[in-house]
Design a protein around this nucleic acid. Structure first.
Length: 262
DNA sequence: TATGTATGGTAAG
DNA sequence: TTACCCTACATAA
C-alpha cells in the first residue's frame, strides 16, 4: 500500500475524522508505550512529508508514523468491535477509530528530531512547496542511474517502487540513464508525471497510472495489473512488448525497454 | 499448516 | 552489500 499517496491520503482522512478532537490513544500490542502520553490529548492536525506521517497534538507532542513495507491502518467506527492483538497504535475519536499494524516507526518525536528527519527528505511532489529547482540541481550532480535515485527519499520524497516504474515508463526514460545525462525537458516531464500520478493516487486511494480512456471500465472495478503499464506485469500495457525485470536499489524494477529509450 | 510475497528503511559489516 | 525488522494475505499442500 504505502507510497507517498497513501500517507497523504491518511493524513487527510485522519485529520478529517479526528482533527480537533480529544482522542483515546492506546497500544493494544503494548510496543508503543508512549501511547499513554497522548491519551486524552486533543489532536490539532496531521501532516504528510513523503512517506512520513505526523500527528500534531496539543502541548506540542508530535507522533511520527512510518508504515514501511508492511504497515497499514484498519479503519472502523468507534469504538472498534474487534482489535487485532498486533495493533501497535489505536486512535479512537468520537465516531471513527484507526488501528495501526506493522509500522516501521511509531514514536513520539522531539522538535529537534522532527527537524532532523524533515531535513533528510527531498522535495515531495505532493506538496505545493516542493522545490523542483532543488531536484534539478541534485540530479545534475549525479551519475547514478535515475531508477535508483527515484527511490532515494533524500532526493525526491514519496516515490516508491510502483511509481518509479510507472513514471519512467510514461516519461519514456530508461531506468539506467545516469541522472546528469537527463535533459531539462526529461526532468520536467518526469516531475510533472510524478506530480500527476501521486495526486491521482491520493484522490483514488490506490495506484492507477493508466489513463482513464485506456481503462476498460470504471476505476473501482479495475484489477491491479490492468491499472498499471509495467509494474508487476509480463507485457507492457502500452506496446504489448515484453517487460524487463531489472534490479535497482535492491528492488525489482520493471521496465519496457522498447518504450523507454530516452 | 506452510510458504512466498509485498507499494520500505536502517544499521552493521 | 548484506542482514534484519515490521505483518497480512494469497496460494500451495
Amino acid at each position: 500500500m504505502p507510497e507517498g499517496h497513501t500517507i497523504h491520503r491518511l493524513a487527510l482522512d485522519h485529520e478529517k475524522a479526528l482533527g480537533g478532537q480529544v482522542l483515546k490513544v492506546s497500544s493494544p500490542q503494548g510496543r508503543f508505550e508512549e501511547a499513554a502520553r497522548l491519551d486524552g490529548l486533543r489532536l490539532k492536525r496531521t501532516e504528510a512529508h513523503g512517506k512520513h506521517l505526523f500527528y500534531l497534538f496539543e502541548k506540542g507532542l508530535v507522533l511520527h508514523v512510518h508504515l514501511g513495507l508492511f504497515g497499514r491502518y484498519f479503519s472502523s467506527k468507534s469504538p472498534p468491535t474487534r482489535v487485532r492483538p498486533t495493533t501497535r497504535l489505536l486512535l479512537q475519536g468520537a465516531s471513527r477509530s484507526f488501528a495501526l499494524v506493522g509500522p516501521t516507526a511509531c514514536e513520539l518525536l522531539s522538535p529537534s528530531r522532527r527537524r532532523e528527519l524533515l531535513d533528510r527528505l527531498g522535495p515531495d511532489p505532493l506538496r505545493p512547496d516542493a522545490d523542483l529547482a532543488a531536484v534539478r540541481a541534485a540530479l545534475a550532480r549525479r551519475k547514478t542511474p535515475i531508477g535508483q535515485i527515484l527511490l532515494d527519499q533524500s532526493v525526491i520524497a514519496g516515490v516508491g517502487n510502483v511509481y518509479r516504474a510507472e513514471a519512467l515508463l510514461v516519461a519514456g526514460i530508461h531506468p539506467e540513464r545516469p541522472c546528469k545525462e537527463l535533459t531539462d525537458q526529461q526532468v520536467t516531464t518526469l516531475w510533472a508525471t510524478l506530480v500527476r500520478m501521486l495526486h491521482d493516487g491520493v484522490r483514488d486511494g490506490r495506484i492507477i497510472t493508466v489513463a482513464p480512456e485506456e481503462l476498460p471500465g470504471p476505476p473501482s472495478k479495475i484489477r491491479r495489473k490492468e491499472a498499471v503499464y509495467v509494474y508487476g506485469r509480463r507485457t507492457c500495457r502500452r506496446c504489448e512488448g515484453p517487460v524487463s525485470q531489472l534490479t535497482s536499489a535492491n528492488r525489482t524494477l520493471y521496465a519496457c525497454l522498447a518504450c523507454q529509450t530516452g
